[in-house]
Amino acid sequence: MTHEDWRTIRHRLRSPVLCFVALLLLLGVNVLLGVYAPFRWRNIWMIEAGIAVAMVLIVLVFSMELVREPPVIRLFAGVGFYWLVILFSLTLLDYLTR
């Protein structure tokens, strides 16, 4: 391994390592919230869900490199989630108004 090799690899692995650190930090926050629940708030699940969404987005955009893909692939990555929203929202429309 030459010096230049190390520089290449540091450069290439910067983004994966940053993702890794960010994901672990977010997971840590979520675990803390889950275990200690620092304040008794009924709707704490909203924060937890928000953090989970952030983690999913990090994986999608950086780990799966959506940021580098052409628009059409980004579109189809989004379509899957959009359809998930359709399924959830219309089904819950029934359950929440029964």
Partner: peptide, 14 residues
């Protein structure tokens, strides 16, 4: 899809 379920116990609003 819900139009298959109007009388199947779905809520009125849905």
């Amino acid at each position: 899809w819900g139009h298959h379920m109007f009388v199947n116990g779905m809520s009125e609003y849905a």
